[in-house]
């Protein structure tokens, strides 16, 4: 990790916001990662006799309508949600930023083509695009990931493009060219790394959005298919039991809220940390 990055991490952890959100997210991530090891039950093991039980010592968060342990399912749901969100947004960022950077650097006709496609995607609501791709690829994890990636592509392409547009006139870019750097070198070694800061922040906040999008798709049964747990699907099946077993819908909902708020707070702390450094730059 370079000095730069270590410094940012240190700054984030020095604020309340950053510390709390980092801890919360680490817990969620660990729960997801370690789920197969530490979960008390299997996520698909049904116990129809013990269906819709209240939270108790054996089942800390109760059971759902099929008798499956809710805590276990929520932990596995974390895996689904986080994996889908992080992978999709990750792919979206990489493809989007490079697309935007190339458009901004070369300009001209290439820029026009890329920006038109991006604007087209941009003009549709995320959920519609996601539904479109699910319709093409079919429901399930793969479809969800592709759908979310494409839905957010426009945002990162625009961000990458605007950043590179403002950076390409900077003197250090000119300096690199005067040293004989090829276009590829300038783009990858100077423009993209310097454009990254706002993209990282936007990416982080988009992960929060993506979790909600995944939950939405899951709510309609279009996301991860059963028996793979997904917080959204869990909430969907919990609506039927809303009055006699509200915990079935509440706990997954709380999981979503906590994770998304945690991500947003971390994003805030990150903005703050990066801003301070940028402020120091100008003195």
């Amino acid at each position: 990790m370079s000095d730069w990055q270590l410094d940012t991490v240190r700054r984030i952890l020095s604020t309340h916001k950053g510390l709390v959100s980092s801890v919360v997210l680490t817990v969620v991530a660990l729960a997801g990662v370690l789920a197969p090891i530490i979960s008390p039950y299997s996520f698909s093991e049904q116990d129809l006799g013990g269906a819709a039980q209240q939270p108790s010592l054996q089942h800390w968060l109760g059971t759902d309508e099929f008798g499956r342990d809710l805590l276990t399912r929520i932990m596995y749901g974390a895996r689904t949600s986080l994996t889908v969100a992080v992978v999709s947004i990750g792919a979206s960022v990489v493809v989007g930023v490079i697309l935007g950077a190339v458009a901004a650097y070369y300009g001209g006709v290439l820029d026009r083509i890329i920006i038109t496609i991006v604007d087209l995607i941009w003009s549709f609501p995320d959920i519609l695009i996601a539904l479109l791709f699910i319709a093409i690829v079919g429901p399930g994890l793969k479809g969800t990931m592709i759908a979310i990636s494409v839905a957010y592509l426009a945002q990162f392409a625009r961000l990458g493009r605007s950043q590179v547009l403002s950076l390409r006139g900077e003197m250090f870019v000119e300096a690199a060219r005067s040293l004989g750097a090829s276009n590829r070198h300038v783009l990858l070694k100077h423009l993209v790394p310097n454009a990254i800061s706002p993209v990282v922040v936007a990416g982080m906040l988009a992960v929060g959005d993506a979790i909600i999008l995944e939950a939405t798709l899951g709510f309609f049964g279009l996301g991860a298919q059963p028996p793979i747990p997904s917080w959204g699907a869990m909430m969907a099946s919990g609506t039927a039991q809303l009055f006699n077993a509200p915990w079935i819908i509440i706990f997954p909902g709380l999981a979503i809220i906590t994770t998304v708020i945690g991500i947003n707070l971390l994003g805030d702390a990150l903005i703050h940390a990066l801003n301070i450094r940028d402020r120091v730059r100008t003195t």
């Binding site: 003197m171 250090f172 300096a175 690199a176 040293l179 090829s182 790394p193 310097n194």
Partner: peptide, 26 residues
């Protein structure tokens, strides 16, 4: 070439060493 603004002509993410070794790698 030596540029006018010594701040913006150096990539802010590169150390002095990185900046000086870049011409060689290019």
């Amino acid at each position: 070439m030596v540029f006018q603004d010594p701040y913006s002509s150096l990539d802010p993410r590169y150390t002095v060493e990185d900046t000086l070794l870049e011409p060689l790698s290019i």
